[in-house]
């Protein structure tokens, strides 16, 4: 919290500012295959976060000397639109987005089977259209669905969510205000099937017990998000089945 700012009461009568309980996710909406030109795409909403993920490839890697003779190279670009935040965000990559791109790419490292497409590149573009804390987790969720939609061979799907600490309480899925005025924020990404954590970052301080509780909250939430991702993918191909049954 910056100096001179007034302390905000983040918890009132056991509820958060947006009326959620401590262990409640923001509403999630997932749409698969929204971009015609991309090989795989996904539009993902998590509360006020709106992100679009597009996957291209595997395709020829340029420049050539970045090719890997044994496997595909995954490129991940997290980018915030200038209009995604209250003050205009200066367009282009910056320290923050480069870091997020890196950790997000590595969150997919254990699941993408890169050996199937040697010498190629798999491009993942994540565009944040509207931001309200936790965009990297929303981006990872969207990218995971988009990768599956592109037909990329993967061992598992990745799901992601953040936990944090506000007003001394450990809570799930921080909103923008909570993130700005809270005490800690910890985004995690994991494989829901095997409970393997593929990304974990922490900003702020947790006590050991709080960390453990937060981790448990986040992992449970990832299972829920995974189910939503899965349902979105499956429903896409069951919608048009009713007609013309064999």
């Amino acid at each position: 919290m910056k100096e001179g700012e007034k302390e905000i009461e983040l918890i009132k009568k056991g509820k958060r500012l947006d009326g959620r309980g401590f262990e409640e996710l923001r509403p999630i909406k997932i749409e698969v295959g929204v971009l015609k030109r991309a090989d795989g795409s996904c539009y993902f909403e998590m509360g006020n976060n709106k992100v679009m993920a597009a996957v291209y490839g595997p395709r020829e890697m340029h420049p050539r000397h970045f090719q890997d003779a044994k496997m595909a190279v995954v490129k991940y670009r997290y980018n915030m639109a200038p209009f995604s935040v209250d003050d205009r965000k200066r367009p282009g990559p910056d320290r923050r987005s480069v870091e997020i791109s890196k950790v997000s790419r590595e969150a997919f490292d254990p699941v993408i089977i890169k050996e199937y497409y040697p010498k190629t590149a798999i491009d993942v573009y994540v565009e944040v259209l509207q931001s309200d804390a936790g965009t990297r987790t929303a981006g990872i969720n969207a990218a995971s669905v988009a990768l599956a939609d592109a037909g990329i061979p993967m061992k598992d799907m990745v799901s992601s969510v953040a936990v944090g600490k506000i007003g001394g309480e450990v809570v799930l899925d921080l909103s923008g205000v909570e993130d700005n005025h809270g005490e800690a924020d910890m985004p995690i990404a994991m494989v829901a099937r095997t409970d393997t954590i593929t990304m974990l970052q922490m900003d702020g301080h947790f006590k050991k017990e709080e960390f453990e509780r937060g981790l448990k909250l986040a992992m449970d939430a990832c299972h829920k998000i995974y189910e939503l991702q899965r349902t979105a993918l499956i429903e896409r191909y069951s919608k048009s089945v009713g007609e013309g049954e064999e």
Partner: peptide, 9 residues
């Protein structure tokens, strides 16, 4: 009847 699966199913 066919069954749709996602990676990891």
């Amino acid at each position: 009847m066919y069954k749709v699966v996602v990676p990891g199913d």
